[in-house]
Amino acid sequence: MRAFNKYATNRQQGLAPGNMKPILRNILVYGIFIGAVAAYGLLEKSTYYLQLATFVGLNTLLAVGLNMLMGYAGQISLGHAAFYGLGAYVSGMLTVHLGWSPWITLPCALFAAGAVAYIVGLPTLRLTGYYLAMGTLGFGMIVNILFREFRKFTGGPSGLPGLPELTIGSINLSHGANALFLVWGCVIVAFFICERIVNSRMGRALRAIHYSERAAAAVGVNTASAKLAIFVFAAVLAALAGFLYAHMITFISPSTFNFLASVKLVAMVVIGGMASIWGSLLGASLLTLLPDFLHIFAEYEMIVYGLILMLVMIFFPEGLFRNLVKLYERAKNR
């Protein structure tokens, strides 16, 4: 019952104090969250920091989807950046070559990523453990090669420039605080949906699969369809992040969506904490902001980055979020 207990303690030791009712507590947590985002967006004037915060939001969106797949359903993916790229490229190609509005290409991008995830997921999710990791890795590599080689449509390795920005009327959603609000708005909605899923029948089925797929199947969980559903969900979230990225930067190139990007996403999930939605926020923030702080190390940046990754995993194998909560509990009980 490892996974289950982990989850249960997580619920008990949530952010909010004491024995507040779950609904009240949720309203409080989301209220603080929304307030923090709004305050930051309104008070921060530097577009550099706004952009950085927006990147944190995008990575959180990617990490939380992947966490649903890895943390709750126990299915690792080393090719998640492929869906990120699919969202970006489908929308990018349709807007650039056909001149469609991004608001029309958004559903196309999400649908395409979901459909690909469904088709690829059918055979791939039958694999387990490292074989699943390899299967998803291979898929990610192939998608990245397609981005590079279908030059006529994708712009090839040099990338695809000239994507339109997101606008509603005269409001531009691709820069500064507006982009921040858009991305973090998506994050908050995604968090909300994820929490709903986790607490639903579906969530219980996923956790059962994580603990033992056979046992889950034995008690009547349709494991194949549950895994596939969550895979498609994670892919669609990633595609949404890709869509937002593409129209924010207005330029996409294959290197943003390569194997390394997939590995970084996995690292975000694990460092933040598997099976912890708020952990994804922490992991994504840390790994996005870290390189910015590490600049002072110049040549030694890679060494320090690698060391931090190792040390966090050695001393906080359950992820930072859960350990922080534990520390808080300990302090409170003293």
Binding site: V266, V270, M274, I303, G306, L307, L309
Partner: peptide, 16 residues
């Protein structure tokens, strides 16, 4: 999975 991330970190460290 924890060990995998440690080896990934070690890889970056060694590269550095």
């Amino acid at each position: 999975i924890v060990l995998v991330i440690i080896t990934v970190g070690a890889g970056i460290f060694l590269r550095g």
